[in-house]
Design a protein around this nucleic acid. Sequence first.
RNA 1: CGGGAUGUAGCUCAGCUUGGCUAGAGCGUCCGGUUUGGGUCCGGAAGGCCGCAGGUUCGAAUCCUGUCAUCCCGACCA
Length: 591
Amino acid sequence: MLIRLSNFFFKTLREDPADAEVASHKLLVRAGYLRRQAPGVFAWLPLGLRVKAKIEGIIHEEMAAAGAHEVHFPALLPREPYEATGRWDEYGDALFRLKDRHKADYLLAPTHEEAFTLLVKDIVTSYKELPLSIYQIQDKYRDEARPRAGLLRGREFTMKDAYSFGLTDEQLEQSYLAQRDAYERIFNRLGLDYVIVAADAGAMGGSRSEEFLLPVEIGEDTFVRSDSGYAANVEAYVTPPADPQPYDGVGAPVEFDSPETPTIETLVDLLNREFEHPEGRDWQASDTLKHVVLAVTDQAGERELVVVAIPGDRAVDEKRLEVAFAGYEVTPATPADFAKHPELVAGYIGPVLDGAQILGLEHKSGIRYLVDPRVAEGTVWVSGASRAEVHTRSLVYGRDFSADGVIDIANVRDGDLAPDGSVIQTARGMEIGHVFQLGRKYAEALGLQLLDENGKQQTVTMGSYGIGVTRILAVMAELHHDDRGLIWPANIAPCHVHLVATGKDQIALERAEELASRLVADGVEVLFDDRPKLSPGVKFGDAELLGMPYVVVVGRDAAEGIAEVWDRASGEREKLPIAEVNSWLNAKLGR
RNA sequence: CGGGAUGUAGCUCAGCUUGGCUAGAGCGUCCGGUUUGGGUCCGGAAGGCCGCAGGUUCGAAUCCUGUCAUCCCGACCA
């Protein structure tokens, strides 16, 4: 394989494009891999396509090894199947919709669950054909509110999406693990230092879901992990319930005046000024209970107020809130809500008024009352007294008040505990893969059923498994570059070696030509800069920008049979007899 | 959707505050010469409804209003 730059479709730019912010975006455009078409939409030039094809090649190999069969669907799909599963509406503005000339609705697929399900329904007629895994590599479309960071969050992006079909939970688990293993092999081959985290499975009606995250600052997901190996997306992190505490020695609740304490901070100040903590330490925000009033609306439009209690040192995490109320719309309570419920005194909300519990379905207010998992039997709290400028201390959960249930929506912090008791750290990550047990939701909606070996009608259970191909390409560029340009790993570089012929001396070009032929004959992919009349500086600059892992310069010493070889990643440069370049390269490439 | 910034040559930008005559630079492109191990140098040339619409003015890239677009932060992102 030989590419001659003298006759190649590319153009390097000396300056960063004005609309690029992140390194991968700047470099891929500057080096002539990509051009912007529209926000979050890119044209692919030959160099970019070659890298993309190499990444896809690795995926194809591992999909085949996992027993998945390749198919290909159109990106343009009709509305009806998405109507049947509810996604035509649920997907909202992120779905690209369009009409044909007959005014029929179409969409540009954001993922292909419906299409795959219907194809399997069409083709598979017996349980004996299951389990089955099929996949495609296809462009996906999502009308992101704000595309950003070049390829990292585009509106068109290439994705490998696989779907598994089985009749039993065991078959689903088996297919899931096969894909999960394939993902590990793919990411290992790419040298990506991924973390597998538990993900939220609730919203799609599935049971088990894991994300492959790359721990990078630029990532948009927050996840937690501990030394014990526990790892979860914050959305899926579960706070271990606190242990019940003995409270025999705790005195009865005491109300105290607390003027001008609208915030937790001012309340803690007042506690420290006026009261001694029973344990002799300072009062802390975590001794207090913060009450948040939410309005929860279900799909039928039924609206209900809910009061949530979390420790005063925590805030509500909006993503965790959404997961906790999946399927409902949640908004802050309005002034009108407070007006309707005089027992909710803003800033002084508490479960108890005058010694009697008021919050809770079974209590006077009738408002559902949920508490953080840290609010365990016997824990002692300071809370509002349901009257302006009065708080209560020594409120014991399980003695003085109780809740309708537990809710886990407080934010997560470094030092919190994992379910296994280990200490977690939080980090940012970029999602590069996702494996998901969908269960029977799609099969049910689209009528994918088969007779089992007992002649009983069974609904098929499905999994879906995605890898962001173009996002991985961008991530690889983020991870592998220096201030001069890209530095691809050899297994995804457009070519193995960038061969530069410099000098006006004809002999250098001839020697370079001979070397190129020998390398090609040996199966090396060669990008050959044979452009005439270009100064060496220009060629060196392009060689470094384009990012082949190895550069061979045949120039000044060509007449003596000497070339210079560069290892871009290590920065090493050495002079070698031209005759030895091939074996040097083979050693570097591990061939 | 909220906040911020920016739209001038193929690219990256200056000019706008304080309106004025043929609208500038660098890079790139084309022509001639020069140079050949770090984006050579010299000379010449092509290339711009100054995002769009309206307004103010004798006169608008510059001031005002509207509008569209792009980028950044946030919200959003099965």
